[in-house]
Design a protein around this nucleic acid. Sequence first.
DNA 1: TTCCGACAGTGGGGTCGCAAT
DNA 2: ATTGCGACCCCACTATCGGAA
Length: 497
Amino acid sequence: MVGETTGVLFAELAAATEDVRAESRRLGKVERIAAALRGLAPEERVAGASYLAGSPRQRVLGVGWASLRDDPPLPADEATLSVAEVDAVLAQVAASSGAGSVAARRAALGALMARATASEQAFLRALVLGDIRQGALAAVVGDAVAKAADVPLKDVRRALMLRGDLGAVAAVALAGEDLGQFRLEVGRPISPMLASTAPDVDAALEKTGPAAVEWKLDGARIQVHRSGDQVAIFTRTLDDVTARIPEVVEAALALSAESFVLDGEAIALREDGRPHPFQVTGSRFASKSGVLLTPLFFDVMHLDGADLLDEPGSVRASALAGLVPERWRAPRGGPEQLEIALARGHEGVVVKALDAPYEAGRRGSAWVKVKPVHTLDLVVLAVEWGSGRRRGKLSNLWLGARVEDGFVMLGKTFKGLTDAMLAWQTEKLLELETGREGHVVHVRPELVVEIAFDGVQTSPRYPGGVALRFARVLRHRPDKPAAQADTLDAVLAVRDA
DNA sequence: TTCCGACAGTGGGGTCGCAAT
DNA sequence: ATTGCGACCCCACTATCGGAA
């Protein structure tokens, strides 16, 4: 519990975020954030706690990087902005998103920036861009909420899991109210449970213990809530997409239960049951026209008044089988399912511990995904200077495959690089430099890198008409001449396999 | 003392709707 | 009519801290 305060200036939160960024210890960050939380007046807590976690309280502002590209206005000398004033302006900006002019939003934001000190301007910018880089987001701030409110950490985590809104949870905790009020509520989304990764089914089983093996479908995650004839559907980031996929609403209404919360995937399937490329599903999701999506459910968190979150996975699977017909369920079985899923054109499998509860929002070892990986030896055509902790290092590689008269670019990657690899490639690529354009360093196409990727997709952007999906670096191959790198034909062979 | 789970950071490709040009 | 922008859909991987073993 905390004493009533008269509130804080926005500048105090800006100062807090600078302190947190400068502090490397997680416990130190928590301590500093807790101190800032304690200073918030009751009516500032929702917005203030959100700011400390790096995001405005409004989900969508309708302004982004381009709106902040120009130099900020001259900063104010003195800090005068209150948290409430900032919140009011951002609420006004958000309210015009999708309905008003970009210029009006930019003007409102600009006026706010003009009233801010240099430190506040930097903080505002970070909030708008979602680019706080202080080493603490909602999870760490949740620890600070527990500390500031003097309540058990597990209670805060549970509330965050069930509400997914740090500001709301912080306000309740700091007010000394019962966090038990955050319960699974039909119609209100919870953070979906996530999966970690393993190279094969055996490795996955080592992490999970006794488990079922379920097809992994390359669609979009959906969480379907139904109460009576009311249906609501949410995505992985808890956006409400009910109006965009009426066919899934219909499917939910066809099930024989009064109320439920289901977890699943919505995917575009062809006549023969094989999946369309992910781009087809993605397009349908964004546009509300096009090919129909099929829901394939794999979990049930609530059924007719009973919360199933804490039930073992095997019990939830049985409940699901009793509620949802087979054609709307993700196939599930033993290790043989990997071969079957791949033969049917699907992505892979998720290995799911039989005894695990539904751990909303966590990426634990209870669910482990297994997908086949392709590799190719490609050539570095250019590289971009990194940012943040990669500042001063050449980071993001432009990758090319060999063609008759040179190389054709297939995409970029920055993934998989250790600090040692970053240091090595920075030195090596500077030796190969042929010129610069902005933050791009062009190089002689001589360095070969072994690249892992999940698949080949058609690309409107790259000259070969294809791009790699989820490319990452496995290792540098200074031993291999570029003339022996893989060809575009080899890439197309992967696509057509 | 060592190990490992959780977290944050660093960015990737594609698609759409909408406003500005 | 085109283009730029913002918002989301999919995401892999490494470094670090600190509690668990």
